[in-house]
């Protein structure tokens, strides 16, 4: 048994949030730099601006994008950990609150009906999973809503199968067009239930851009979807070009014999994701 004070989790959330808001993930930066190759005109201008923007953000100590997002926190907690201190949810929210205040991040969370802003970007969207061992892994994903708004979920029939999955992924990106800040990173959930499928799509965005799913048949869907999306020609910011998506990442889970849920969670070209293990 290991004792862990939730203050330490709060401090880690703070560190991760500050870093995530002000930097692109390494794999995202590399993918954007690769996408520059062969682009011309406005699409090239958009990609150059995106890359230069991160340099300005670093130099000036500013968030890369003003949409510093909804704070998505995924905590994988070893079952041999005994938590002490403030309630876990309060500790996580406290880390978010302090990071968004000190980092001059925008507070973007509001009541869905009155639209009144909570003023401190809380509550965070906290997922906790219990795992073996005594380590705590924390992932911080600030999720902007220009791209979140373009995300979709569909309950396909089993008969629609692989083709149905591919068509739904490609059509979701096509319908989103220029709105979610392409080139996008496409997170896909396949299987599970209505709710867990959407979460799988979110988890898919944690994977490094440009890596394959370990299952060969799933990786093949990722490759085929990416090729078809890039053949759409939407391009960076919708200005036409070769790169509409920098990657497609799928996560799968067993589902019911009667169903085939598929969720597509769109991430803009500012892939910001940081993790730490305590």
């Amino acid at each position: 048994m290991r004792t862990l004070d939730t203050n330490e989790i709060s401090a880690a959330v703070y560190r991760l949030a500050r870093k995530a808001g002000t930097t692109l993930s390494d794999s995202c930066r590399a993918a954007l730099a690769r996408a520059l190759d062969g682009e011309t005109g406005a699409a090239k201008f958009a990609l150059e601006t995106a890359l230069e923007n991160e340099i300005v953000a670093k130099r000036e100590g500013m968030p890369v994008c003003q949409d510093t997002g909804m704070a998505v926190v995924l905590l994988t907690l070893g079952q041999d950990i005994f938590l002490t201190g403030a309630p876990l949810r309060d500790a996580v929210n406290d880390g978010v609150r302090r990071a968004y205040r000190d980092g001059c991040f925008r507070k973007s969370i509001c009541d869905p009906l009155t639209r009144e802003n909570t003023g401190d970007n809380t509550p965070a969207h906290l997922h906790v999973e219990i795992a073996a061992g005594d380590k705590a892994e924390i992932v911080f994903l600030p999720k902007g809503f220009g791209s979140e708004n373009m995300s979709r979920l569909c309950m396909l029939t089993p008969a629609e199968g692989r083709d149905g999955i591919l068509n739904f992924i490609v059509n979701t990106v096509k319908e989103a067009g220029s709105r979610p800040c392409p080139p996008v990173y496409v997170g896909v959930g396949i299987g599970g239930s209505f709710d867990s499928c959407a979460f799988l799509a979110k988890k898919a965005l944690i994977r490094e851009v440009g890596t394959d799913h370990p299952r060969q048949d799933v990786a093949a869907i990722e490759h085929e979807a990416l090729a078809r999306i890039n053949a759409l020609g939407i391009g960076a910011q919708g200005f036409h070009g070769k790169t509409t998506a920098i990657g497609v990442s799928c996560e799968v889970a067993p589902t019911h014999i009667a169903g085939l849920p598929v969720a597509v969670n769109i991430q803009c070209h500012c892939v910001r994701c940081e993790k730490e293990t305590l």
Partner: peptide
Amino acid sequence: FAAIGGAGAMYGN
């Protein structure tokens, strides 16, 4: 006019 989405630091600066 379209500004480049995601380039918040550059525009803010």
